[in-house]
Simulated scan of single mutants.
Amino acid sequence: MNRAIDLYCERLGPGLWGEPLNAVTNLAFILAGILLVAALRRDAAARRDPAVLGLVALVFLVGIGSGLFHTLATVWAALADVIPVALFILLYMYLALTRFAALARWGALTGVAVVLVLVTAMPLAFGFSVATYGVALAAMLGVGGFLHFGRRHPAGRRILAAAGVFALSLAFRTADLPLCAALPVGTHFLWHLLNAVVLYSLTRTMMVEGTKKA
């Protein structure tokens, strides 16, 4: 029998409900997706945009993949957890650079390639650690800062606000194991709740600011 991958404080055993709170809080991503679908119904331009529809679909897949990992805790479920997150990061990076920063396609693809290399290199060099998500945070701060302070683009402030929430989320993810003795339930569930807010906010920003000329 395969042993469950045990990475978080809350895991109580190898069964489906070994991480009950970590599993249930993935419903926050599903709720975020439902709210985004509701927003699409009110926004014809966003509804006709395949890239925005892709972001919304990825929000649902993030919730499903993370839910699978926190219940099954297998290698393939871990891949189902991280791949949708990586795809969301890369797609959003490309869209932000082309639609908000108005970079040429080659420039945007270069930026995406840099992020992809760093996201890939971090797990290979250090294991899948918080440093991997630090790349995503740095990208959000860099793009958001450039848009807000350099271009005075309204999306910049919203991306920086999402980056602030993500930084807090990352702090809770980092604190999960160190606080395990004092807080047996862990803090990883807060990573889910706050990241659902981040993905919702980023996708709504793309709907509102990124489809005006799409």
Rank of each mutant, 00 (worst) to 15 (best):
Phe166Trp: 02
Asp43Trp: 03
Phe172Ala: 11
Ala138Asn: 04
Tyr200Phe: 15
Arg41Glu: 12
Arg11Trp: 02
Arg99Leu: 11
Ala101Leu: 13
Thr205Met: 11
Ala104Arg: 15
Ala155Met: 08
Phe126Leu: 14
Val197Ile: 14
Asp81Lys: 08
Leu21Gln: 05
Ala138Gly: 04
Leu21Val: 15
Leu21Gly: 09
Ala86Phe: 10
Phe69Thr: 00
Trp76Cys: 01
Thr110Asp: 01
Met122Cys: 09
Leu40Met: 15
Phe100Arg: 03
Pro154Lys: 12
Val135Asn: 11
Ala181Gln: 14
Ile159Gly: 12
Ala86Asp: 04
Leu116Pro: 01
Leu58Tyr: 06
Leu79Phe: 09
Ile64Asn: 07
Thr211Ser: 09
Leu118Arg: 05
Leu190Gly: 04
Arg42Gln: 13
Cys9Val: 07
Trp17Phe: 15
Val75Cys: 00
Glu209Phe: 14
Ala196Glu: 08
Pro178Met: 13
Ala167Thr: 03
Met93Phe: 08
Val52Ser: 07
Ala102Gly: 14
Tyr8Ile: 04
Asp176Arg: 00
Val115His: 01
Phe126Asn: 11
Leu53Gly: 08
Cys180Ser: 11
His188Arg: 08
Leu109Trp: 02
Ala39Ser: 13
Ala102Glu: 13
Ala131Cys: 01
Thr211Arg: 08
Thr110Phe: 13
Ala45Pro: 00
Val85Cys: 09
Phe60Tyr: 14
Gly127Glu: 10
Gly150Ser: 09
Leu193Arg: 08
Ser66Asp: 06
Ile5Val: 12
Leu147Phe: 07
Leu202Ile: 13
Ala73Thr: 00
Ala101Phe: 09
Met207Leu: 14
Leu36Glu: 05
Cys9Ser: 11
Ala32Ser: 15
Leu199Trp: 12
Ala125Met: 10
